[in-house]
Design a protein around this nucleic acid. Structure first.
Lengths: 137, 137
DNA sequence: TCTTGACTTAGAGTACACTCTAACCTGTAT
DNA sequence: ATACAGGTTAGAGTGTACTCTAAGTCAAGA
């Protein structure tokens, strides 16, 4: 698999793939006769997992820590597991915060909807003062 | 309320508060006799809401759009509501993605735990080869 | 043979959101 | 009176994660 195809399949740009290789997030790829990167399809499992870590907000620094351990082999499993467990805790907190904020957002939107209902007779007198039903002014 | 107290109460740094004012996310504050910012406590409602938007991943650009409409008064309610509804959709997607990734993370951690169980007799032969039960190599 | 498209490198540039610095000012406590 | 905590400004600097540029190489098809 050439870098272009990996880009398509992984959702990363070729620029990003080379960047990730440079910093150590992706292994240094094998090359074909012409010096071009030639990937084994199994790399997709790794890029997909990296995507998960990214989606869940792990920094490149931490991904790097994980990636380095992974390259060192199975005996680093305990440490990798610890990283993931710590990270999972972070994700859970983030998820919680997001859920709470989503509810607040719902309430806020509802209050705009209410304001709509109370003012839709007044389309021609938009300057009339109402308390901001949305509660943020 | 001086800027330092607002900082404590809002969780923003004084640097950030001044920065937000400069770009228009916070209103230009009233000043006391000595030219220092003096805030009405009601500003906290706005900073708290800004925090929600930030927590949920809204860009400063979009917060700015919202903030500008808010300063223009109640008649911008429809547009503000639209912004929030679009944003809510984004948050829902993000929440979903996070939940899926959390499950993947759980599975991955479990597989490390399993590997632990299968290898904890082997503490002195850590180089023995196992297929990577975590499935990413 | 020539063009086209995909690839290579080192290194520069960008977007975002702060975060800090320097030099100065003000009000309060000792 | 003087020290000190906390405030002011314009503008420079930082960290993160890309993203792009320039100049060149390579393989395949018309």
């Amino acid at each position: 698999m050439k870098i272009g195809e990996l880009a398509k399949r992984s959702g990363l740009s070729t620029h990003t793939i080379r960047y990730y290789e440079r910093i150590g997030l992706l292994p240094v790829a094998d090359r074909d006769a012409g010096g071009r990167r030639d990937y084994d399809p199994s790399i997709l499992i790794w890029t997909e997992f990296l995507g998960r870590l990214k989606t869940t907000g792990m920094s490149i620094q931490d991904m790097l820590r994980y990636a380095r351990l992974r390259e060192q082999g199975t005996h680093t499993g305990l440490e990798r597991r610890a990283i993931l467990e710590t990270h999972r805790e972070m994700v859970r907190r983030k998820l919680n915060a997001l859920q709470v904020s989503l509810l607040v957002l719902d309430t806020k939107i509802d209050s705009y909807v209410d304001t709509e209902k109370r003012t839709h007779h007044d389309d021609n007198t938009p300057d009339r003062q109402f308390p901001d039903a949305a509660g943020t002014r």
